[in-house]
Design a binder for these strands. Structure first.
Length: 557
RNA sequence: UGGGGUAUAGCCAAGCGGUAAGGCAGCGGGUUUUGAUCCCGUCAUUCCAAGGUUCAAAUCCUUGUACCCCAGCCA
């Protein structure tokens, strides 16, 4: 696709422009810093495109850094999944992957430095007491009784913490700042806690782990990050970020800027809710095509370019926002309209018998793979006496607005002939099973010579040559735009978010389909082969997104 | 009067004292062997509200209002 050529403009890029113009920086260094405790979702994609996009446009660098300071919640599997997602989106990080845990020795050193400066102390208040001492939003906290322990003793105590001489929760290292600060995070925040946990990178080397606020700013400084971009909820934390940097002997001064997270209509983005969808088997897994995860979008048939374009279109601001699904859908349709080869598939088949076509003949038709892009070539599509068409494409009678096959009238078979419905058969329930037609052999690749107008065009496949395929039609997971606001999201789940069509009929050329590669099934939408369940002998297609359907609107009126 | 943030169309979003970009969605029309695509047209006399400054205000000032975030040894 042709991604919008113009460079995005947003308040962060304006800050960078100013910094560069004023000589505050000569180059730009950003980072994408996920905690490896889950799968990336479309909201992370926004952050990835922001950070890597800025690095690209400013000839700078963007690091991939795993913010792995809480081993209990993290797993090496997530780091691999995240690396894959970032690469899939089309980005390359600078040098090796970084980990906050790479800096545990240095972090420890800076903690000791704070203690030596009288700016940190070991506190033996338990969790409950710590909370009580912290005060409330409107009332100041009070000083910990351990706040005035001598530097020497704190040094010894911290050493004992490090050596595993205290139990988890027994004590913590706290920065000595201001228990009356209006910023809750400045009320002597805990910067190290005891955890006898095995770490996926550092093994059992440590039994104390640094907290986010202490770690992140120092990691940024160590890596020479110039602009540290994070989401809005860290605005208060910026005061602590700056306090730490200002009070340790480190030369670089990274700056933190905050932007708003992405919210998407009809889905949820919180890790907790996504996790329960998986845990409760409400979806098949983290990559269930209905999920908002990167892995799910990949499996569903979204392209990296479409996600990047989406990130560009939604912009970057500090405003709370909830983007409509239609923006995402427009991005993938735009890409796939240009790039997806066309094919024909019949999802709800009824038989058509062309009575004046030879019984055993298989005519090979050459059909264009793309209506306007000649470079995509043609393919061979077999035409036979018996075909399948979509059940909804035939009616015994209909008004002039219905441009499909009607008894006694003509319609064009896409890429083939004009046919006329002569009679039909139904089953016991009255459902049409077979339509007997005649075809006009003079209409292949041209209109009827006598000037008859045939305005309808329908898709079809050869009954004998078509392949069986399972087709999965996905829809939004929830019935309301903001399911996150519901008391119980279970009550607003869309029970028709997945419709499985077991026996769809697809044209034979689709046997060559590759996982995740898109096709447009003409008149229906964009589909790709499922990357998990499609195996030799069993084709499984996922609907990425339907075509715009103005007929549905007309019909609804 | 705890603090930190944000208010521009249905949804995103430009705008940075000189008279409201763009995208998505919608609506109307044209082309079309996909009811797709494509093309054309249309869509904020007004920027949360009310005052004020100014020749000129979405932009500056004042006072309000609404919404989001902060009291994890999570990130």
């Amino acid at each position: 696709m042709s991604e919008t050529e113009s460079r995005p403009t947003n308040f962060i890029r304006q800050i960078i422009d100013t910094d560069l113009a004023q000589g505050k920086h000569t180059s730009v260094q950003t980072r994408f810093p996920p905690e490896p405790n889950g799968y990336l979702h479309i909201g992370h994609a926004k952050a990835i495109c922001l950070n890597f996009g800025i690095a690209q446009d400013y000839d700078g660098l963007c690091n991939l850094r795993f913010d792995d300071t809480n081993p209990e919640k993290e797993d090496i599997d997530y780091v691999h999944a995240i690396e894959k997602d970032v690469h899939w989106l089309g980005y390359e990080w600078a040098g090796d992957v970084h980990y906050s845990s790479d800096y545990f020795d240095q972090l420890h050193g800076y903690a000791v430095e704070l203690i030596e400066k009288g700016l940190a102390y070991v506190c033996f208040l338990n969790g409950e007491q710590t909370r009580e001492y912290r005060g409330t939003l409107k009332e100041p906290g009070k000083n910990s009784p351990y706040r005035d322990t001598s530097v020497e003793e704190n040094l010894a105590l911290f050493e004992k913490m490090r050596n595993g001489e205290f139990k988890e929760g027994e004590c913590s290292l706290r920065a000595k700042i201001d228990m009356a600060s209006s910023f809750m995070c400045m009320r002597d925040p805990i910067i190290y806690r005891v955890k006898f946990a095995h770490h996926h990178q550092t093994g059992d080397k440590w039994c104390i782990y640094p907290m986010y606020d202490f770690t992140h700013c120092i990691s940024d400084a160590i890596e020479g990050i110039t602009h540290s971009l994070c989401s809005l909820e860290f605005q208060d934390n910026r005061r602590l970020y700056d306090w730490v940097i200002d009070n340790i002997s480190i030369k670089t001064q990274p700056r933190q800027y905050e932007f708003s997270r992405l919210n998407l209509e009809y889905t949820v983005m919180s890790k907790r809710k996504l996790n329960s969808l998986v845990e409760e088997n409400l979806v098949s897994g983290w990559d269930d095509p209905r999920m908002p995860t990167i892995a799910a979008f990949r499996r569903r048939g979204y392209t990296p370019a479409s996600i990047r374009e989406f990130a560009k279109r939604i912009g970057v601001t500090k405003m709370d926002n909830t983007v409509e699904m239609s923006v995402l859908e427009a991005c993938i349709r735009e890409d796939l309209n240009d790039n997806a080869p066309r094919a024909m598939a019949v999802l709800d088949p009824i038989k058509v018998v062309i009575e004046n076509f030879d019984q055993d003949k298989v005519e090979t038709l050459n059909v264009k793979n793309h209506p306007s892009d000649e470079s995509q070539g043609t393919r061979e599509v077999p035409f036979t006496r018996e075909l399948y068409i979509e059940a909804e494409d035939f009616r015994e009678e209909a008004n002039k607005k219905y441009k499909r096959l009607v008894l006694g009238k003509e319609v064009r078979l896409r890429g083939a002939y004009v046919i006329k419905a002569e009679r039909f058969e139904t089953d016991d329930q009255g459902k049409v099973t077979t339509v007997y037609c005649s075809y006009d052999p003079e209409t292949l690749g041209k209109n009827p010579a006598d000037g008859r107008k045939v305005k309808g065009v329908i898709h079809w496949v050869s009954a004998s040559e078509a392949l069986d395929a399972e087709v999965r039609l996905y829809d939004r997971l929830f019935t309301v735009p903001n399911p996150g606001a519901a008391d119980d999201f279970h009550s607003v789940m869309n029970d028709e978010s997945l419709i499985v069509i077991e026996h769809a009929k697809v044209e034979p050329y689709l046997v060559n389909a590759k996982p995740e590669a898109a096709f447009q099934f003409e008149r229906q939408g964009y589909f790709c082969l499922d990357n998990q369940d499609s195996v030799e002998g069993k084709l499984v297609f996922n609907r990425t997104v339907g075509l715009r359907d103005t007929w549905a609107k007309i019909e609804a009126k």
